[in-house]
Design a protein around this nucleic acid. Structure first.
Lengths: 128, 128
DNA sequence: TTGCCGTTTGTTACTTTATAAAATAAAAAT
DNA sequence: ATTTTTATTTTATAAAGTAACAAACGGCAA
């Protein structure tokens, strides 16, 4: 039995929200397969793309994993702080970075479409 | 004939500097193999890691490719602006972002080790 | 209420990116 | 010269991501 896109998307979001850690596409796949054994990687990647277009999920480029978007900064700059100790991720609104970033890129007339800001380090708990 | 790390590193840097575009690890491998046919992926990745530790190269997380470091901001925040039109990359010194970034992460006592800032968009030429 | 049509899906197969483990060789140290 | 350390090749495989296409679904119109 197949599902339409919207249903898939909420399935994937559910999986992401159930975890307190970022998940790789194949971890998500594995979860989904518990209920629907013959889902393929393609489907997961397709659904994740849609979710990211909608601003409902982020991809952590530096660790190839995905988190649900928990902030309300749809058109702004997500800042994702990744703890290398426990793997947890904090999300912040990085709108405040825009003026400085724009200053840098304006030098060469670069027109920015999308900003990626990731910080690696130790969260409050792990650093203590 | 084998080479010590330093020699490898300058070989890889040479390859990177010869290109005006970021290169994937396997593109670098291919180049190196023209002179030394039995180099393995492992060697390239190991060498790239060393170069990045030294601040001589950057990995573009969002496109899985590598560029030589052309700035002098070894202990700071590299900002890499990637043109989705022609693939070129501009590098800027993002030290100026630190106060704002620190503000955000300090809220949760996050201790930052390493910052990743990548911007996707169109370079001056492609945007015109 | 049936047949058509565009959209989304599953399937298959594959490419690209990256790493593990172990045997081996070169350079540096003694 | 022999030991120790560091890097390297080899082999194998894991992990991440994508392409192409036929088939299924859902909605809509007749």
């Amino acid at each position: 039995m197949r599902k339409r896109a919207a249903a898939r998307q909420s399935d994937v979001l559910n999986v992401l929200n159930t975890s307190d850690r970022p998940m790789t596409a194949y971890q998500i796949l594995e979860q989904l397969q518990e209920n629907e054994p013959d889902i393929a990687p393609t489907t997961v990647y397709r659904t994740l793309s849609a979710l990211m277009d909608l601003g409902h999920a982020h991809r952590l480029e530096s660790i190839k994993a995905f988190v649900p978007c928990r902030c309300k900064h749809v058109e702004s700059v997500p800042v994702l702080a990744i703890c290398d100790g426990c793997g947890s991720v904090e999300e912040h609104d990085g709108s405040g970075l825009l003026p400085t970033l724009t200053n840098l890129t304006d030098q060469n007339n670069f027109r920015a479409d999308r900003h990626i800001v990731e910080i690696h380090g130790q969260c409050g708990t792990c650093a203590a």
